[in-house]
């Protein structure tokens, strides 16, 4: 409890609301208190501890003041104790996920097959296959779990699908036009007609190295794996997002396609928006540098650190993780 006390006292100047730590059980924190102190001291002169920031979202006031000259990035997404089951079978998949993402950060989640990574992504955007059974998700200060999927999207959450569905009969440009107009409507701006919209997205094609005829093809119909992934990133580029959740955007891509996709993602990144990547491979992290890497295991985030974790996993596999 010493840790909890310390943390909650350490952010008096933070403009963001404090986390209600009291609800947490010490078990949800993966490292012990004695181990923490030396870590903190080691990092305090450079940057906030990744473990601390990612898991608890608190920083020592001195470091944040030193580094950012009084400006501390806002918390974008705050997930606490999130648990979820498969709607049909009621099988539990997420068992208390905690994660905080701030503006401008790039997070990566790794983990074994079936550890719950993709489920986590889908639950965040409100996929109907899953039912949330506990915990909370706050995005830009709003309770996401109360929102229907389209509201979440309009609020600035974007998930690129691992295997995007084909929609025969609806062209890419019409689909994007609909989605883009939904955003404009929300912002109280007039909707764009097909011709104006074409003018808007035409040059965005270069971002993902796609030809113009790509716009007239039906959404994902007959697309190769690479084209589908490019299309997801293209949608992200056109629609924009405060938090882009990229679910295995690298799987099934050759090196060139991966570079294109990574270039597009990096091009979209600003100090204000953030990325949450789900991946199996270090390769993606070499193109898109993560601020934090999390390891997911059995429906929970069990380890958080920097890129070195990913390197260790790549080298030695997941057996190096001791499940909490």
């Amino acid at each position: 409890m010493a840790l909890l006390h310390y943390c909650s006292c350490s952010t008096p100047s933070s403009p963001t609301p404090l986390l209600p730590f009291k609800k947490w059980t010490p078990k949800s924190i993966i490292f012990t208190v004695p181990a923490l102190r030396p870590l903190r001291h080691r990092f305090s002169k450079n940057r906030p501890s990744p473990r601390l920031s990612a898991t608890l979202a608190v920083e020592s006031p001195t470091t944040s003041d030193d580094e950012r000259g009084g400006y501390s990035p806002k918390i974008l997404l705050e997930v606490k104790g999130l648990s979820a089951v498969i709607s049909e079978s009621k099988q539990p998949i997420l068992k208390g996920v905690n994660l905080v993402i701030k503006e401008g950060e790039v997070h990566a989640i790794m983990g074994k097959n079936g550890s719950g990574k993709s489920t986590f992504a889908k639950v965040l955007v409100g996929h109907p296959d899953y039912e949330v059974t506990g915990g909370s998700v706050v995005f830009k200060g709003e309770n996401v779990l109360d929102m229907v999927p389209e509201e979440r999207a309009l609020a600035g959450l974007f998930m690129s699908f691992q295997s995007p569905v084909e929609i025969p009969g609806v062209s890419n440009i019409d689909f994007l036009n609909m989605a883009y107009n939904a955003r404009r409507k929300r912002l109280g701006q007039p909707e764009l007609g097909p011709i104006e919209f074409y003018g808007y997205i035409y040059h965005k094609l270069d971002l993902v190295n796609m030809k113009v005829d790509f716009l007239n093809r039906n959404v994902n119909e007959g697309f190769s794996g690479g084209e589908r992934k490019r299309n997801e990133i293209f949608q992200l580029a056109v629609l924009g997002a405060d938090l882009a959740i990229l679910d295995e955007i690298d799987s099934g891509l050759d090196v060139d396609a991966l570079r294109d996709v990574a270039k597009a993602v990096n091009g979209i990144l600003t100090p204000k928006n953030s990325v949450l990547m789900i991946t199996h491979y270090l390769r993606l992290l070499e193109f898109i540098k993560p601020t934090y890497v999390h390891i997911m295991e059995n429906g929970r985030i069990v380890e958080t650190g920097d890129e070195s974790i990913a390197k260790r996993i790549e080298r030695a596999g997941y057996k190096t993780i001791s499940a909490a």
Partner: peptide, 21 residues
């Protein structure tokens, strides 16, 4: 859901899908 995930409401999505059929 794909429509919804891109911010399009259910009624518009249904209309688009029925029409595309």
């Amino acid at each position: 859901f794909y429509f919804q995930a891109r911010g399009v409401d259910l009624a518009t999505a249904r209309r688009a899908l029925i029409f595309s059929f």
